[in-house]
């Protein structure tokens, strides 16, 4: 395990209980310059996780609560005419932070959603013809309620593709919840959190992640998995090449977190469900057979041959 990452995770552990894997995956996304979609019911600690992460790396934290009447300018900021200076002045929107929590993203209109997602993709915004760069690093953690809930605008598939990982937080176990109550009863640990890393360290880690070695056999393994999703009987639309790329970047970041400078098939197997599941469009048959994307990914991974032997040099 990478020492710096270990520090962050230990810091987050002070306020979060039993969600180490979610924190780790968030860091994967952060180091791979991607964004995370958290799908869960309210109140399981999504906000706390992001806040703790931001505080640990001394990053500016912004939060946007998406509502049906939220406008793109509420997100991106707006230029306002200043009579004193006789000029339009740009008022920063909440997106101009390092770590942004986009809460309940599926509650707002597609127009506002796409404004956010475009910013996520480009890492810049354009206001009145002026292009402004977003903070570095820039990491969005969007949350959404399960789409069965009323009054939601489900994100279209093309938009979902913008998120590197999608994960579910889930309820804590009984002991974890009890532990949580005990800890909160005595003190407010969040206030006591101190930064353990600097933003520059994160940028450096991002660069290191990019330099992680990925062997040809493993790149091929990723391609094989992606191809398998395209040919699966339950899948209408499989993983795109962008998804394969995303998986490779995620694997490199994860390998770095694990303290390695090379990717193993274990990394691929661990991350593939998080990277691919939300990008798959299932056929109706899958629903009849009660198959979720995660289960289908599990089956695909069990089938695709892991590169575990030397390939004879031709």
């Amino acid at each position: 395990m990478n020492e710096q990452i270990e520090k962050i995770l230990l810091n987050i552990d002070k306020v979060m209980i039993g969600k180490r894997n979610i924190a780790e995956l968030s860091l994967v996304s952060l180091l791979a310059k991607g964004h995370v979609l958290l799908e869960d019911v309210p109140g399981v600690g999504k906000t706390m996780l992001v806040k703790a992460l931001a505080k640990s790396i001394n990053a500016s934290f912004k939060r946007i609560q998406f509502t049906p009447d939220l406008l793109p300018s509420d997100v991106l900021g707006v230029s306002i005419y200043n009579p004193k200076t006789l000029a339009f002045e740009y008022r920063e929107g909440p997106i101009m932070g390092n770590i942004v929590l986009a809460d309940e993203i599926n509650r707002t209109s597609p127009k506002t959603q796409s404004a956010l997602l475009e910013a996520m993709e480009e890492a810049t915004i354009s206001i009145d013809g002026e292009t402004k760069a977003l903070g570095q690093p820039f990491f969005v953690m969007a949350t959404q309620n399960p789409i069965e809930y009323e009054g939601t605008y489900p994100l279209p598939e093309a938009q979902l593709d913008r998120f590197l990982l999608k994960m579910k937080m889930g309820y804590p176990t009984e002991t974890e919840e009890y532990e949580l109550l005990t800890r909160m009863a005595e003190a407010t640990p969040f206030a006591e959190l101190t930064p353990v890393l600097h933003l520059d360290d994160i940028l450096a880690l991002q660069q290191q992640a990019e330099a992680v070695f990925i062997d040809a056999t493993i790149r091929n393994y990723i391609v094989q998995i992606a191809t398998a999703t395209r040919n699966h009987k339950y899948i209408y639309l499989g993983a795109s090449p962008r998804a394969s790329l995303a998986l490779m970047r995620a694997c490199k970041a994860y390998a770095l977190i694990q303290g390695r400078d090379y990717v193993t098939p274990d990394d691929v197997q661990y991350l593939a469900p998080y990277v691919f599941s939300h990008r798959l469009i299932l056929k109706p048959e899958a629903r009849y057979d009660d198959m979720m994307p995660e289960q289908i990914m599990e089956r695909i991974l069990a089938k695709v041959a892991v590169p575990a032997r030397r390939v004879p040099v031709k």
Binding site: P265, D266, Q269, A302, K303, V304, A305, V306, A308
Partner: peptide, 11 residues
């Protein structure tokens, strides 16, 4: 026997 989809580590 290592299963086809089993990584060396898991095996």
């Amino acid at each position: 026997r290592r299963a086809q989809g089993e990584t060396l580590h898991n095996f």
